[in-house]
Design a protein around this nucleic acid. Structure first.
Lengths: 135, 135
DNA sequence: TTAATAACCGACTAATTTAGTCTTATTTCT
DNA sequence: AGAAATAAGACTAAATTAGTCGGTTATTAA
């Protein structure tokens, strides 16, 4: 139904939190979990995804935590979403990655190309909206 | 993960089929099911949704079936999608209808308004893309 | 006026996906 | 050494989506 997953919402919320509460020191998963009353494990996994995708830098150990790697103006929402939702796309057959199974309508499917255009436009919306816009 | 449901895909496919194979007579659910090798019951339900939303006219009985109620150029994809997926929206709290539960972040949620803008832009894409464009 | 055909409707089941938890390992600071 | 933090992966639970089934109503044609 074209809905963002909770993970995406959490990614936006966490990123926004980090953008605002921008004390020089790293921000811990625990702090974010407490702030939003979310489970620590869950928000951790989201932050780990952001880290893997170089949206945040992570620091282990006692004074560790996460810090945004770029200015909020340079972080498009699409990066946040793709980080936690690798196969985000309106229909399976548009997957630019690991598209395993072949669509059974392939032959007589002319809705693919137009939907690809739609997908591009949606991507554009999420690219042009930056983290700084949701602060 | 921001994916259209199968129902939406079927709606697009069925609508497109009707637009192309536009013999004066009504087109049955059975014909469409056969054509795409989908279950009759499933495509029936989709067509019934389209009918309820006045996208197609339905005719019962022996020579019955479905006919698009408008020209394909006047049928935006958003109508087809909303017909089968009434609560299509990127996040729950934007639901313009029957939004039951209150979001627990309501208070400190400033991502809602910007996401509403994003939603509007996406809606625009699906409104401006007409059935005639996917033929 | 009956038989066949086709839409209509709602409850149900199965399958898939998403959300969330648990456990263990690794790094870093004091 | 010990505490605090990230990292990672397997697992479970919940929710959503996909698909099925049974029965009803309307219409046409023989």
């Amino acid at each position: 139904m074209l809905k963002l997953s909770k993970k995406s919402e959490y990614a936006l919320m966490a990123a926004r939190y980090m953008a605002i509460k921008n004390h020089g020191t790293a921000i811990t998963a625990k702090e974010i979990a407490n702030n939003f009353n979310l489970s620590y494990e869950l928000i951790s996994k989201v932050l780990q995804s952001l880290s893997k995708n170089q949206i945040v830098n992570s620091y282990k150990g006692v004074k560790g935590g996460y810090i945004l790697s770029k200015s909020p103006a340079d972080i498009p929402l699409i990066d946040l979403i793709r980080a936690v939702e690798p196969d985000y796309q309106i229909v399976d057959c548009l997957g630019y990655e690991n598209r395993k199974e072949v669509c059974s309508y392939e032959e007589n499917c002319t809705i693919k190309y137009p939907l690809a255009m739609v997908q591009q436009k949606i991507d554009k919306v999420f690219f042009e909206t930056k983290l700084s816009h949701i602060i």
